[in-house]
Design a protein around this nucleic acid. Structure first.
Lengths: 214, 214
DNA sequence: ACCTGAACACCGTTCAAGT
DNA sequence: ACCTGAACACCGTTCAAGT
């Protein structure tokens, strides 16, 4: 465990990737994604325009298209960038309930700051979600004793709940809204707890079945 | 109970609403909504265009705009129409678990046949959902013994789960997709069961607290 | 290779003009 | 009152032309 952490740090500090130019003069994908994220954070995906993005970057429309072939491709880059910021697996500790809640709250807070991205990110989870995150979440549940089928069911419940909540409005961050006086953030956590309780019940069943089979 | 059922039927058969013109010649809102639904069912909300809708209706673009002032308004009409088809409260029986599952599956099947509507419908639940449905669901949970706060949490879990699932792709109906071989419809029900289990755990707690307070 | 800016086909929306 | 069809301001995308 400690080894992998050290490895991560050192490789991150010393990585001078082979022949990749550090700052290919002119536009870089990194700069484009950064600008796109800023625009989305400010006016949402609906307000993100290839023209506006180009203006923000100080280039002509065609230049942007030379680096990212399509708006869909641009959003894929942004989505991958956002997913990559979700709590890194190595730092997780404690019971599986807390781990799952932390990941979901983290995901919600990141996506919540970028209105309109939730949908797109959920529509392409499979292609965008970092393998680390996926593996770690599944491992956590496996270690806790969940069956394969239960893992699928529980993750389905969690992910789509977060997706639905995020699609409906900014829940987290400075723009957190409220519904009929209800604090949306509190409501979000309450719903999360309901699903956690459901997962616990599922786990109890899984363990009972495992014992019966022995 | 029986009375209300009879009332429903008879009023539906004999309703000749006061001064409302039966078929105000020309375009009617009903016809517009019907055509819009057909287009959405076929090519999704993304494929629904005011121009295409007008062509389908056999009128000029301006005519459509004369009846529905904006595309947003059109989608509100469609959304209200779809919500109104969710299982009517009067027909519900059995334990609250089954009632809730039925409503959610019903909602999913209706929304699932209209790609892209899930988001819009969730974004405007408050304005679109029929009061009957809202009241009935809350009453069911109240009768079961849920606390006010638990009701909010449980409904949050259910609704946003369905919303997230629906936004991610057609789960139900003839276009039901599959993810990595997994049957999406089965996955949807499994996730629903997890949330039901969570609600049951919550109810047990609520009852315990109520007993302790006595 | 990278960038420019005009052009194309589409969209939602508006509006003078007809009946 | 209801409808027509042109027009406007925007989009995403393409592409000949420049450096």
């Amino acid at each position: 465990m400690i080894v992998s952490k050290i490895d991560l740090v050192s490789s991150a500090e010393t990585s001078h990737e082979s022949a990749e130019p550090l700052e290919s003069r002119g536009l870089s994908d990194r700069a484009i994604v950064r600008a796109a994220r800023e625009i989305i954070a400010e006016v949402g995906v609906g307000g993100l325009t290839m023209r506006r993005l180009s203006t923000e970057l100080g280039v002509a429309l065609g230049a942007t298209y030379h680096h990212v072939a399509t708006k869909h491709g641009l959003l894929m880059l942004v989505g991958k960038d956002l997913y990559s910021e979700v709590t890194p697996p190595e730092r997780m500790e404690g019971p599986w309930q807390d781990q799952l809640k932390t990941v979901m709250l983290n995901l919600a807070s990141i996506v919540g700051c970028h209105p309109g991205m939730a949908n797109f990110m959920m529509l392409h989870v499979d292609e965008l979600i970092p393998v680390d995150l996926n593996v770690m979440v599944r491992d956590t549940l496996l270690e806790a004793g969940f069956s394969e089928r239960s893992i699928a069911a529980v993750l389905s419940a969690f992910f789509f709940y977060v997706a639905g909540m995020m699609s409906t409005g900014s829940v987290v961050g400075p723009t957190a809204t409220s519904i009929r006086g209800q604090n949306l953030m509190a409501l979000f956590e309450d719903g999360l707890d309901v699903i956690v309780a459901g997962a616990e019940a599922r786990l109890a069943e899984d363990r009972k079945q495992k014992r019966a089979r022995r």
